[in-house]
Design a protein around this nucleic acid. Structure first.
Lengths: 116, 116
DNA sequence: CTTATAGATTGACAATATTCGATTTATCCG
DNA sequence: CGGATAAATCGAATATTGTCAATCTATAAG
């Protein structure tokens, strides 16, 4: 066993809204909390840059994020965790490194929820 | 003069990103701040429900939001202000009331920025 | 086994955000 | 004018969040 999925739990799986989009009908409280959670994960400049770096490179190691983002290692770890728990990225541990990829379907789900 | 635009200033106008989307290339810091600002306005359950109510009704008076959202008047006022400054809704004061509408192009711009 | 390295976790602190009561401003009506 | 109503602003309490130093865990290499 050389691979291991990382941080795939949390609120990361399943649909964001039970049905429809923000623009279609008044949101229930549960749906609002759900969507706000994912949007909250996106609503940070460091996490947006992190996500865009991962999206631009197929696969990115955590260790390659400290440089471009100019944040400490614990901070990077915190942000990857937030994005992973929101289901927006998925990590795989290989040896000492964790490799991150975007989850395109999750981003698509966000756009849908926003009325896409 | 019976009409007046409300809270159209702030970061509300202009494009969210200078070019491309989060998924296309690493975001610059300015773009990241810009997008995070708009997403931050969306990343609150009360504001999402507020937005969905306005979107579902062409035009909604602030006074008609207190009931469904079950928040105090100052809280509603605060949230409409945040959404308006993000350019997501626009208000028009008519007499004693302020009528809110969504700005569909702004929501579309968010979806685009997210890789739509 | 020992050392080195990647990443996660913990704890603390500063900065922000949400919320509401009280007050103020603006507008309408009699 | 004076009373009533819609909304904005102010001030304060509370909760949440972003950040990093220090520490811990896991894996690789010698």
């Amino acid at each position: 066993m050389a691979k291991r999925a990382v941080a795939a739990a949390g609120r990361g799986s399943g649909p964001i809204l039970c049905c429809g989009a923000v623009t279609e009908a008044p949101l229930g409280e549960a749906d609002a909390e759900s969507l706000a959670g994912v949007l909250g994960a996106l609503a940070d400049p460091v996490r947006l840059r992190l996500l865009s770096i991962v999206a631009s490179n197929e696969e990115v190691c955590s260790c390659d994020l400290e440089g471009p983002l100019r944040k400490s290692q614990p901070t990077i770890s915190h942000h990857t965790k937030v994005l992973a728990e929101a289901g927006l990225i998925a990590g795989e541990k290989r040896g000492r490194w964790v490799w991150w990829r975007v989850v395109p379907s999750r981003l698509e789900a966000v756009r849908q929820a926003l009325g896409g």
